[in-house]
Design a protein around this nucleic acid. Structure first.
Lengths: 132, 132
DNA sequence: TTTGTTGTGTTATGCTATAACGTGTGCCAT
DNA sequence: ATGGCACACGTTATAGCATAACACAACAAA
């Protein structure tokens, strides 16, 4: 585990403190007091954090979350991760399903498609918001 | 099957003629000769076409494709659709996997999560580009 | 005819992301 | 030690994606 730089640490901290995913520009605003002035400072930190697997990008939201499994040495670090995103409260559940992962890999192999990154995002209402 | 409006027909036509997904702004440029002047004309048509299931939005690309199964009365019209997107040539394969779909539905049901829309996108290299 | 709905057009604006350039720092091979 | 390199950082400008707000026209239902 490489040491994080100051900016990376600040961005990751902002994401960890947040209940919901944050856009790059929201992160920027949260970190203005720490010297952040430009989007690139955020995007550059995010890029590295994503490479390290500490942060995920939610494609359907153009936003970012801290990985829910940081610290664990669970398989989720290396495989495909899935997300359930509540459209009402914004809460995100990160999970992992070997069956789905293998099924998609099998499809790709069958087509000769070389899989690089897989996005799985379920949008809807979490149990709490669905009840309300 | 409702009749399409002129703008919807133009947008759908542009997508059908394209090998690769198109962004809203690329569609706009392609349709300037037909009187399109503003992004909203495109976005409004896309919104309806997506509702009708004739067009899909690719979240990881912020772009749009014509549904590969238009005309057929295949189950894919109503269920979750998955995409494999080639990072090199931009070609998109649309497919459908009941196992994956059910597996994700089961997960959602187990969590009390009310599924509204599910995104599955595999980014990578198609067989042709992987070979090259 | 009035009213409501839907599609349309236009202008302006906001949000998301990256290009291009320059600076400073630490490392290490010569 | 010093020159060269890699890398994080900072700044300005710009590109690309999406929607708000307002106005008008066509048409169907009451």
């Amino acid at each position: 585990m490489t040491q994080l730089t100051k900016n990376q640490d600040l961005v990751l901290g902002a994401l960890k403190r947040s209940e919901a995913p944050l856009s790059a520009y929201v992160i920027l605003d949260k970190l203005r007091d720490h010297g952040f002035r430009a989007p690139l400072q955020v995007y550059r930190a995010l890029e590295k954090l994503i490479e390290m697997g500490l942060v995920h990008r939610l494609e359907s939201l153009n936003a970012f979350v801290a990985c829910a499994h940081s610290g664990e040495s669970c398989c989720s670090h290396h495989g495909t991760v899935a997300f359930a995103i509540c459209n009402a409260c914004g809460h995100v559940m990160e999970f992992h399903d070997h069956t789905v992962e293998h099924r998609l890999s099998d499809w790709a192999r069958g087509k000769g498609f070389k899989q690089e990154k897989t996005t799985i995002e379920i949008r809807g209402l979490c149990a709490t918001c669905a009840a309300a």
